[in-house]
């Protein structure tokens, strides 16, 4: 299918003030609370945060594959190539899923159908989305070769593949229709490092070739450093810090971001103790008033706990949601001088 080229003015993916809730019995889980982000063609955005921060929910909202029962997008807009996906009909969404946008799921062991040949699982996407000129089986074999699996293994079943190979099949499915946007949800977390390196390289190559935009959901700062252009640090359903990779890694500003970097054991240092962030992420059914990070933040003041979350943006677009940012910067400078 020929994809229309749209004007390059607005970014390919634009999320504005997204709010998602899950309802269960008498509780409301506030999973995503006002997330806004932009992503251009060929760019990679790293979505970093702890378990339950709302990363996967954001990705699923873009695909509109949140569970029917319980989950609800209660606010915001998601523009994909200029169209608001939240207003599209289910039939229109089906054309988008797997074609314009596709997702690599976290666990390759469960993402594949165990009783269907791997080749057929790739061919299925092609059959659904392409006109008759493309032979699905041929395309599937091509995709297998691209991800480094011999085409003759088309007729095998997932259990005959190792973890790394299964994940490559999942990637082949996701990329079979040359999507414009790829959502990689912890795509390599279940893999060993040497295999992870292979898979990340492969995704990077294909991304370059097809100018695909990618959202990479991960909790591994190392992968973010290697792969992403932009980074969003997400906590309790909000983006606390957002900027280019250089801004986030060289000048982390939000106390949570600083805490995250401090908690990673360094590969070179000989520190006796690590610097964990005290406490636990907040309960999403009962978020604290004000800044969600304030209960764990060493700099929190009454202002943070009451009035909420500040918003600060530098001229070059480095966003940080912290109302004490200037004071903290000053305190840190004084600490450094000592």
């Amino acid at each position: 299918m020929a994809k229309e080229m749209k004007k390059e003015e607005s970014p390919f993916l634009q999320i504005k003030d997204l709010v998602v809730e899950y309802k269960s019995d008498d509780q409301i889980v506030h999973a995503v609370n006002g997330v806004s982000l932009n992503l251009g063609k060929g760019r990679t955005l790293g979505l970093v945060g702890e378990t339950g921060a709302g990363k996967t929910t954001i990705a699923k909202s873009i695909m509109r594959i949140l569970p029917d029962v319980g989950a609800k997008i209660t606010g915001g807009e998601i523009f994909l190539d200029g169209r608001n996906v939240l207003e599209l009909s289910e039939t229109e969404m089906r054309k988008i899923r797997g074609n314009t946008v596709s997702m690599i799921f976290q666990d390759p062991m469960t993402a594949l159908n165990p009783v269907q040949r791997v080749g057929d699982q790739i061919a299925e996407v092609v059959r659904l989305h392409n006109d008759e000129k493309v032979n699905p089986e041929k395309r599937a074999k091509e995709m297998l070769e691209i991800v480094g699996i011999p085409a003759e293994r088309y007729y095998e079943y997932p259990h005959q593949f190792s973890g790394g190979m299964k994940q490559r099949v999942v990637i082949a499915i996701a990329l079979a229709c040359n999507p414009d946007l790829l959502l990689a949800d912890e795509a390599t977390t279940a893999l060993d490092v040497t295999i992870q390196a292979q898979v990340m390289d492969l995704i990077g190559e294909l991304q370059k070739k097809y100018n695909t935009a990618m959202i990479l959901i991960t909790h591994d700062m190392g992968i973010v450093a290697q792969v992403c252009d932009d980074v969003a640090i997400i906590y309790a359903g909000q983006i606390l810090e957002y900027g280019s990779k250089e801004q986030i890694f060289d000048y982390p500003t939000h106390p949570y971001t600083i805490g995250l970097f401090g908690a990673i054991p360094s590969m070179s240092g000989d520190e006796m103790w690590l610097h964990p962030i005290d406490g636990l992420p907040p309960d999403p059914t009962n978020l604290p008033e004000g800044c969600p990070f304030s209960p764990r933040c060493q700099y929190a003041s009454d202002m943070c706990r009451k009035d909420g979350i500040g918003f600060h943006m530098t001229e070059d677009g480095h966003q940080c949601r912290c109302c004490r940012i200037e004071e903290i910067k000053k305190m840190k400078r004084e600490e450094d001088q000592k």
Partner: peptide, 25 residues
Amino acid sequence: KALLSAIPSTDIHNKTKREILKGEI
């Protein structure tokens, strides 16, 4: 060596050349 070089480093300025192993265990 391969194992160590496969670890994604958090140092964004010092992109070390990585030895990527072919094949799997």
